[in-house]
Design a protein around this nucleic acid. Structure first.
Lengths: 241, 241
DNA sequence: CGGCGTTTTTGATCCAGGTCAAGGTGTTGC
DNA sequence: GCAACACCTTGACCTGGATCAAAAACGCCG
């Protein structure tokens, strides 16, 4: 008990408090025993933008929680055309349960902190902890819903609707509680190239659409990264959400 | 025991044998008790193409197994632009666990047989049968993988690659065991309009690309629906899978 | 079989967004 | 402070696929 308490008061809580934000992490679904076991194999890492966390060539042997930053999931055609197929924000879970190879590359889009643990240990725990399994199921369904919204965007929206949709997505993520109509500021977690790969456009088109939004007085841009949206509701209308 | 055996030999087995094909159905994960309970509220339906099974306006109060045919999941923008975001083949499970409203419309693309049961009953069983929950989790992950392949297609592939990808998808589905290189025939489960909504194109472009494939000697088309692919490997190369 | 609505194909034209090519703007290190 | 580099914007032009219009093929029913 003292030992457990010890661990619980030193390493694990820090790990878990961040995992637990917004109740989408993994740790809160585990018993103290499992946490102790897991923490033995856990490694926290801080990685720079551009670092590849999982390559589509690899076999997957670890999972991770995103503690801070944004991870982009990409797919690439043989000739280099690329598409971002998912964005993982803290505290999302990173990994593909029940499968040993990935067809997806995961790469840090911003400076990222992750907390990684071996697939084996967690897979064992999934079987024992229905609550954990349920959370992972929920995240999968959630990602599926997002992917489908995104498919509508990729298949049917115009360039200007796409860029507005993207800004709206980031705005909502940066402050989920924000007023529907009103002003909101945030830093873009992606470069223009990433935004283009996200939206299925080129960087030139993204840039032109941002310029248009700026000239229309809907947003302000500082240092290419910091965005202020003056009227979220109007942006949303442009996005055709 | 006799009663159970009775039921098991009359209604349920028929239902389950179809559900169970390719091990993606729901029934095989249930105990006999649960099957008996479920079968009390189960209704099989045969529906014509175009019938809406779930509307995005509705609240969801039932699940279903697709026993035969193809169901398309669509999203529509206010101005009518539409995108197919999922295709459910038999014996897929149809429904969104843990949520009471859908942002998606499910519509029969071909004549379809479904076996529907109330959400409530199954939700209760999910909690009691980890095996069932696990299967649904697997299907969700599977659909997520498919959605992401699809996003790459929608974001980055050309019209000709898209149409080839589509034919390849249907070919694989119609005979998963088929030779990689060789001939294969099948009926398209979708109209040109559906194919266009699937691929993010217009019907004219789909038609032109099919004509091109025909003129290139890669496929033959009879009655607008029956397709023969002469060289699956060559099609796959065109698709840039 | 022939008439009629629906679906598909084909053709002509147009335009949103891609491509190519400079030029700006920040950021980092010396 | 300024050189070097990475990133972003702007402009000119081009093209793949959309749009509009019409003809052809199919499917259904009397």
């Amino acid at each position: 008990m003292t030992i457990r308490q010890d661990i619980h008061n030193s390493e694990i809580p820090a790990l878990c408090r961040s995992c637990e934000a917004r109740h989408r992490g993994v740790c809160g679904a585990l018993t103290t025993d499992q946490l102790v076991e897991l923490s033995r194999h856990t490694t926290k890492r801080k990685v720079d933008p551009g670092t590849v966390l999982v390559s589509d060539a690899d076999t997957i042997d670890s999972y991770a929680n995103v503690l801070a930053g944004v991870v982009k999931l990409t797919k690439t055609l043989p000739d280099g055309r690329q598409q971002i197929v998912g964005l993982q924000f803290a505290p999302d879970f990173l990994g593909r349960p029940f499968k040993h190879e990935s067809s997806i590359t995961a790469e840090a889009a911003t400076p990222v902190r992750v907390c990684a643990f071996p697939k084996k240990s967690l897979d064992r725990m999934i079987e024992q902890a229905p609550e954990l399994s349920h959370r992972l199921h929920l995240q999968a369904l959630n990602e599926l819903d997002e992917a489908r919204d995104w498919m509508l965007m990729l298949g049917r929206k115009t360039a200007s609707e796409r860029v507005a949709s993207f800004l709206h997505l980031i705005a909502r993520h940066s402050d989920p509680e924000a007023e529907i109509s009103g002003e909101i500021s945030f830093d873009l977690p992606l470069t223009r190239a990433d935004i283009a790969d996200f939206l299925g456009l080129t960087i030139e088109t993204v840039s032109r659409q941002l310029t248009k939004l700026r000239k229309d007085g809907l947003i302000a841009v500082e240092n290419n990264r910091h965005i202020t949206v003056f009227d979220v509701a109007r942006l949303e209308r442009r996005a055709n959400v």
